[in-house]
């Protein structure tokens, strides 16, 4: 245990070419799968929460294999905050928009006033819009939880 801690302090432990290269190959595919899970939440198992966690996990993998600073280069902290807020805002905004155009709160079929298609088709699309918002919010919060917990709030070293 002591030996492991000393090695980790010298950053030799886990600093491996194989891990770096395989992470670089895997991350785009994990992100693509996350987007697929969000977009196909209607017709296959999945949805906003699951896809958001996958997207967050890809960036967490990046931060684990490299460094916290390297992961900030790929996905900056301010961008993360903006995306998290936008995600929550998409959900609440859609709900308020439904009320503004004359329907009930969160009644997606009222959105036919904006784009005249079948109201039932609007319910299908409304769920999709909402899931995208949930996915963005979950991704941002997962990433922010990992950053804060792994570095103890300093945002410099990481695990």
């Amino acid at each position: 245990m002591k030996h492991l801690q000393e090695k980790a302090a010298l950053r030799e432990f886990g600093d491996n070419q194989i891990i770096r290269v395989s992470t670089r190959i895997m991350v785009p595919f994990i992100q693509l799968f996350g987007l697929y899970v969000i977009a196909h939440g209607h017709v296959s198992p999945g949805g906003g929460f699951q896809g958001g966690v996958l997207l967050g996990a890809s960036y967490i993998l990046l931060a684990l294999a490299f460094d916290l600073k390297t992961s900030f280069k790929n996905f900056s902290e301010s961008m993360n905050g903006i995306l998290g807020n936008v995600g929550a805002l998409i959900y609440v905004g859609t709900a308020v928009l439904c009320a503004l155009v004359g329907g009930l709160f969160l009644d997606y079929s009222a959105l036919t006033a904006l784009l005249p298609i079948d109201p039932i088709q609007w319910r299908y699309l409304g769920v999709f819009i909402v899931e995208v918002g949930v996915g963005l919010a979950v991704m941002s919060i997962m990433l922010s939880l990992y950053w804060d917990l792994s570095s103890g709030g300093d945002m410099d070293e990481g695990l």
């Binding site: 949805g47 929460f49 919060i141 939880l145 804060d148 917990l149 103890g152």
Partner: peptide, 24 residues
């Protein structure tokens, strides 16, 4: 349970943060 899992993740995250602060 889909919503319960998300709540459980949030609760775990906040609890770990409070524990880190207690340890500090």
């Amino acid at each position: 349970m889909l919503t319960a899992i998300v709540v459980s993740v949030s609760v775990t995250g906040v609890a770990l943060a409070v524990m880190l602060r207690i340890y500090r």
